[in-house]
Design a protein around this nucleic acid. Sequence first.
DNA 1: AGCTTAGCTGGACGGCGTACAGTTGTCCAA
DNA 2: TTGGACAACTGTACGCCGTCCAGCTAAGCT
Lengths: 157, 157
Amino acid sequence: MLAAAREIVAEDGAGALSMRALARRLDVAPNALYSHVADKTDLLDQLLDDLLAAVETDGIEAMMTSTYRTLTAHPELVPLFLQRQGARGPNAVRLGEILDRLLGEAGVADVPEARRVLIVHAIGFAAFAGGSDEWTAASFTRSLHWLLKGMTETRAS
Amino acid sequence: MLAAAREIVAEDGAGALSMRALARRLDVAPNALYSHVADKTDLLDQLLDDLLAAVETDGIEAMMTSTYRTLTAHPELVPLFLQRQGARGPNAVRLGEILDRLLGEAGVADVPEARRVLIVHAIGFAAFAGGSDEWTAASFTRSLHWLLKGMTETRAS
DNA sequence: AGCTTAGCTGGACGGCGTACAGTTGTCCAA
DNA sequence: TTGGACAACTGTACGCCGTCCAGCTAAGCT
């Protein structure tokens, strides 16, 4: 079911992912989906959290870059991310915890703030990347460095 | 008409802004709206660009902070902003030009990149602010400083 | 007086998410 | 072996949505 949903999104964009379209692809009545999913929101949540399973976690910069790349690899899903203000599933939680630990080890002063800044930055950039523009990756990396530098420099203050 | 649309958004959220709801409030048949607006998208564009008229333009930091505040003052509209990847109307264009000039005067190396970074930052933060959380404003200001510092420091490279 | 045009109406089309009630098939406990 | 629980599904329906078409009316210009 998630696989079919991903196919729809990949082929026709996130806007084409409706319960009815999904049911059509599965050769099933639309309401049959509600035996497997509470809501459309529920479906989207599963879809989004699933994506995050692939994010690498070896270091802060690697983690954020990997998040950014993962999101831009599935541009059609990014609007959903924004709509739901980031994912909330188990993978998202796990990544959050890892990031917190890494930030703490780096001596960042305000860890929750730093986490939120980095997440906003990654998702925001992924959202504006849209197409396959080259400039975005470079801008993302450069501004990520600015942020990281800033948040580690103020560790003493 | 824009006023009525704003009322709906203010009272019941952006999700409640439908052509039909708008028509209902104006005591008019739904299709009558299409004499004044090409699309729902068109309506949203006008709505968004309108918001930007109030943004202050005296300095980069003031500009971005004002943008952030303007957006968070109308949290229900921010999702629309994200959906449409920023506004595209005359006000948005004007602000873009002003920001470019300010960035150039500040000696920033890559002006278009800096502009995009700042816009992503402001809209992204506004999107995640959501409610009236206190932390967000502080985080926004702090990370804005990090970005500004980074982009002006590399003006020589 | 006639023509154009702006602004509207009634009605319709195809789509959406989802609720309710009922059917089927599978599997386990008695 | 039978009975009942339960998961998965269907048919049908409700109330929304954006938008198109054709037609009406009133105001204004020539």
